[in-house]
Nucleic acid binder design. Sequence first.
DNA 1: AAGATTGTATTAATACTTTAATACAATTTA
DNA 2: TAAATTGTATTAAAGTATTAATACAATCTT
Lengths: 127, 127
Amino acid sequence: MHLHISPAEGKPIYRQIVDQVKYLIAAGRLQAGEELPPIRVLAEELLINPNTVARAYRELEVAGLLSKRQGAGTYVSGGGSPLAHQERLRIITERIDALLVEARQMDIPTEELMELIQTREKLLNEP
Amino acid sequence: MHLHISPAEGKPIYRQIVDQVKYLIAAGRLQAGEELPPIRVLAEELLINPNTVARAYRELEVAGLLSKRQGAGTYVSGGGSPLAHQERLRIITERIDALLVEARQMDIPTEELMELIQTREKLLNEP
DNA sequence: AAGATTGTATTAATACTTTAATACAATTTA
DNA sequence: TAAATTGTATTAAAGTATTAATACAATCTT
């Protein structure tokens, strides 16, 4: 699993890990049931403290994406989102609104934004 | 200007102000040249410290949305984004990717997401 | 020019975030 | 069962964020 963290990216290390693992799972490059590197192993690989990896894994577990078993390891969980459909829509709607506002303020036309979304969606599916 | 802050929303007060003013401008409900309430006035209205409003206004000024003149007041600036087009696309692409990943992880189908985006975009335009 | 109105600057208190050091506990493997 | 491997828990240090108290400075209004 090739994660890549940039110390001075402004974003905290544990969050960089979380986001990248989320992306890998969403893109299908990490399949349900697959085992992730042990906390210490990934920590050594990334030259960071094991607790930082542990925190990232814990967040991903709370989000329902990973499941851990002490002594055994950490695995990608199967199954869908644990939230109710209405709650999911509420959260996503918030995100969409923020995106639209930001795009508008950057003078990015709606059509260009829509095309960009299409492009990125394909990229998430195919490679 | 009817702002509404919720103390226990998790989001800091100054950020709630920033986001709502951004939305109002994006929706055209605050037009270029319009004057915003003085810092102290808005602070009293929202029952918060004037510095908190000042901070929100400062962020909006840095973002290029407001311009202030001491003694005079705070106004909505006209004109487009100060960032280069390529830089704007980079930022928006990041947001899009995060949105797509989140939607996928919530099992929201692409079609439903796209429809939702269309709906919210209209809402931003019309009312 | 004087007073009122507006934004600015400085400082500090408090809470939260992030990362790390270290020891512990459950599970697997030989 | 013994050792190795895996995740867990506790504590703390350092930095950052948030809000507030207070005094200052520029501009406008009369």
